[in-house]
Write a protein that binds this DNA or RNA. Structure first.
Lengths: 143, 143
DNA sequence: TATTGTTATACTCTATAACTATA
DNA sequence: TATAGTTATAGAGTATAACAATA
């Protein structure tokens, strides 16, 4: 284990702390754009591709299908998403962003990324790139 | 922003997902050692140094002072910690690990570290070191 | 009066199960 | 019968405020 730098906090402890501090920073940003954390997660998931069922959307953002219903109600009411029954199978709801929803997601994400940059600026640029790359790798592996 | 690799999930999203998946992996490990997540956090904080007040301990692990009371009750009942009134100021409780508490923390941490290694093994060793180093830097900065 | 620890309460988040409507 | 969506309920986790003991 020589050189393994084991004299550090547990990985889980550091990740939980960092995740929590990021959520604290991002909360007021999302509030400024008048959306919730889950609302933002939904908009971001739908930006990449429309979804054919609410269950699939829920799973893609790591939520329960019952948990996103109130979120979808709100997003639909504000006309940020379309949510239409599929004519081919009237049980399912076709979900996609409206132009307005796409704009809100884009603006919120820009603000989020700027806040992230403030944190990441504490790493020298090469370390920063390596960190993000490793994070993406682990994120894909964990999924 | 050339070369900034912005085509990735938000930093917060990745950190939350990774933190959650680590908690899922670690939960059965801690259960096998018959301690809770917060119990483990308390034992680990006290391993590094005894604490003079419960409030200080709570803050050091990012918890509320009211939230650790049941945890301390349990740890004390099982004789994993000592929790004695300070003769110099009878309001405060002096907190430190017992020999037994130190052993439980040590065994649990070894198991936790082994589980972490399984995840980290998905990174090439040099990337792994860089990732951990960056994480420690950000963790210190965020505190 | 200020502080430590404690208790009580309420609030948020989440998980589970039961219901409807379609297939 | 099986599935998508919905609703209702209960549970866990958390935050806030009030209280007792001590300084």
């Amino acid at each position: 284990m020589i050189g393994d730098a084991d004299d550090r906090p547990d990985l889980g402890a550091m990740l939980v702390r960092l995740a929590r501090s990021l959520l604290v920073v991002e909360k007021p940003i999302l509030e400024a754009h008048d959306i919730s954390m889950w609302g933002y997660a939904v908009l971001t998931a739908l930006r990449d591709e429309p979804m054919r069922t609410q269950t699939a959307l829920a799973r893609s953002i790591g939520a329960d299908k019952t948990r996103i219903i109130a979120i979808l109600d709100e997003l639909q009411r504000r006309e940020l998403i379309d949510r239409d029954p599929d004519p081919a199978d009237r049980r399912v709801r076709l979900l996609r962003l409206t132009a307005s929803g796409r704009a809100v997601q884009s603006e919120a994400q820009a603000a989020i990324r700027a806040a992230e940059a403030t944190l990441l600026d504490q790493l020298p640029p090469p370390d920063r790139q390596a960190f993000l790359q490793a994070l993406v790798t682990l994120d894909n592996a964990a999924a």
